[in-house]
Nucleic acid binder design. Structure first.
Lengths: 202, 202
DNA sequence: ACATATTTGGAACGATCGTTCCATTATGTC
DNA sequence: GACATAATGGAACGATCGTTCCAAATATGT
């Protein structure tokens, strides 16, 4: 079969993201990608040049999607926003989360092209900046002391977020991780009430 | 050249650990292993059967070494012991940490043999149990409330530990991570004085 | 010095890797 | 119906993968 006018590029990249995220760059074979993506080798190479090209587009799309998702979390106060942000990454009923593609790429850096390396590091930096921005809002809102170590605290919550994405494969279930979030939030001293109403999503 | 009576098996496995830790199971080629290990392909297959055999031995040795290291941390109180434990994993002057082999193996689980999968999950569980044990000591010592959620808190500090091993590659330097530890320790309310005297090691 | 055990280099295997090329088939436009 | 566009299947490439086998070389124990 053949001849369709155009395929959905977004769907293709979304499928590629899932493969790269589960297997990593090196272990993801072109065969795995064509199979998951539903494209022939020919079309794939015509559109993305080579494996590295597809990976860079996948990593870029993943980064944008992740940051959009992080930024779209809503809650009344910065602290509740942080908590809702973390809870939004609790594992859902969907099969299993497979870790963060950006973090995995940082671990695989020696295997990546220079462009991909830079993209992975930049993606990590953007995550850190997003969290740091949220903490800064906490300071201006009076929920955090003026002398709060924002960078260090951002790395901490970034670590918790990565744990949420990695630990399901390591034997931690959703309710356990939900309680872990409560522990992590105790690093952000609470003024008034706590407990956010939002539900967990994959 | 050839003919030595015996090679140092511990050194061989230590070198293999480093390769698997940096590249992961699939991306680590036999050529990479023989080169790093200093053994010929022939000897390697004679001793370890196949790649999976070498990997399982490396993973087992890494697990024992890691837990021995975690258990050997000394400090006056359970809380200070936790803090010293985390600080002992701060990146040293040595090139760069390369993440935790156990955690990486959990992420690569679909690529591993069943035995290796089980070993990776068991290694993660043992890390969790070690941290949980330390927290239980904190409860009996009166440093933690009786109703402390030990499992959840253990996952939290396990997440911080993994962050310490992963974030150096993601752009966080040692002093930043040291401050991150202070943030993480604020989840363990302090009674008296703080600040541990131990220094950082790789 | 001899026998034994151990390690080695090197070749070879089938499989799979990423990549390239081309002839073929289907679609949309005139 | 003819033509350009786009996507396809399939073969082929050199390289590398994990693995196996064997003859040659070296050290140890007596």
């Amino acid at each position: 079969m053949s001849g369709k006018p155009q395929f959905d590029e977004a769907e293709v990249i979304a499928a590629a993201i899932e493969v790269f995220r589960r297997q990593g760059y090196t272990a993801a074979a072109i065969s795995d990608l064509t199979e998951a993506v539903g494209l022939s080798r020919s079309s794939l190479y015509q559109r993305f040049n080579d494996k590295d090209g597809l990976f860079r587009e996948a990593l870029a799309a993943y980064t944008e999607r992740l940051l959009r998702r992080m930024n779209s979390v809503k809650a009344d106060t910065p602290r509740l926003r942080m908590k809702a942000l973390l809870r939004s990454f609790l594992p859902g009923k969907a099969p299993k989360p497979a870790g963060c593609l950006i973090a995995r790429s940082c671990a695989d850096i020696p295997a990546l092209s220079e462009d991909a390396q830079a993209a992975a590091l930049a993606g990590m930096a953007r995550q850190h900046q997003m969290v740091a921005g949220l903490l800064r809002e906490g300071v201006t809102a009076g929920e955090l002391a003026e002398d709060t170590n924002i960078d260090a605290m951002a790395w901490h919550y970034l670590g918790v977020l990565q744990a949420l994405l990695n630990f399901p494969q390591a034997g931690a279930d959703g309710s356990m991780l939900d309680q872990m979030i409560d522990v992590a939030m105790s690093a952000w001293p609470v003024q008034g009430r706590d407990r956010v109403s939002g539900s967990s999503k994959a």
